[in-house]
Design a protein around this nucleic acid. Structure first.
Lengths: 179, 179
DNA sequence: TTTATTCATTAACCGAAGTTAATCCACCTG
DNA sequence: CAGGTGGATTAACTTCGGTTAATGAATAAA
């Protein structure tokens, strides 16, 4: 399924610290991550950073707004490790969409997954405290956490690194999983 | 487009304070709101309420998880005013999906809108303070706000009614839009 | 080895929001 | 009219997270 798209894309190398695309710029290309690790985040006017999600091997990323509505990218994607991705031009994505009936199903499953993911995230941000969100993240993404800085984890949780450090201290003392 | 679905649904009256469906119950039916006002919300174990969204005439609501994965509904929908809705059974929705090719496009546009809406909400919860979210809501949904209680507005913003009252006091004094 | 540099932690202080409870007000209802 | 009810506000206190700045620790660079 992704295969069809990958064929019309190009494999690209992204060293650690480089951008797949940047917020505000024209874009709309689609990226399949082959290896490595990237973060997708918003930059606010006053220079603050809010991380939408981390993406690794097997996942894809694109600014839906940019593809569908032709708007500038609404967020930035930066590599946290040396990464490899297949870049599919926006035109090819749209072309497939209009000419290949099977592609509609692919898009559907992508959108379904995206909607479900965002719904889960909305629930967490709305209903859970920062500490609960951190513990859930530790549980669900233990492997991933080892590859992330505390700074990035905090920005994903919606808090500052200072607050995260306090939370880590709290849960260490009490929930003391001393293995 | 919605017409096809509405044909296989039934018009139902929901007096104020009644449920379209409840969290935890088996369901998956799709509802098109014809008139009135409903709220979709999560109930936590300790009895707290978090409002996902308000829906009015022309909008639809269903638990995607219930339709697609066959899980119980992940949230509750309650009428805040006397309302009328077309209820389409889950089976009919799925049936259309498999037998009517045109329906895939409808689903696509629904999912796109849903994904965009959730993405916007994620941004607001992640990047904006409660006060900023309230002011944005006032701007974008002025008409709707008149029909809502402060309690429900607060639960939508992710804060308590007490906190909302304090915010209203703050913005009244300073941002004093005395018309 | 010494010096930067970067990242995580900690402290001190402040402001925002939660909790609980009291008050006020509008609207019913008997 | 008196009494009751629910919604919004306010107060008092606590907890949590933001801000700023200092400190530690580890790694890279000179």
């Amino acid at each position: 399924m992704n295969e069809q798209l990958k064929k019309i894309g190009a494999i690209r190398q992204f060293p650690k610290g480089s951008f797949l695309f940047r917020q505000g710029a024209r874009g709309g290309n689609l990226f399949f991550i082959q290896s490595g690790l990237v973060k997708a985040y918003y930059e606010t006017l006053d220079g603050k950073e809010f991380i939408k999600s981390f993406l690794t091997e097997g996942e894809f990323i694109a600014s839906m707004q940019a593809i569908v509505a032709g708007n500038p990218n609404s967020f930035t994607v930066l590599t946290l490790e040396d990464s490899v991705a297949v870049e599919v031009p926006k035109e090819a994505v749209l072309n497939q969409f209009f000419n290949n009936p099977a592609f509609t199903d692919i898009l559907n499953s992508m959108l379904l997954r995206l909607a479900a993911k965002k719904e889960r995230r909305e629930y967490e941000l709305l209903c859970m405290s920062a500490e609960e969100r951190y513990l859930l993240l530790c549980e669900r993404e233990a492997k991933l956490l080892e590859r992330l800085s505390q700074n990035d984890i905090a920005r994903y949780l919606g808090i500052t690194p200072v607050a995260l450090s306090r939370i880590r201290k709290r849960v260490k003392v009490f929930g003391g999983e001393s293995i």
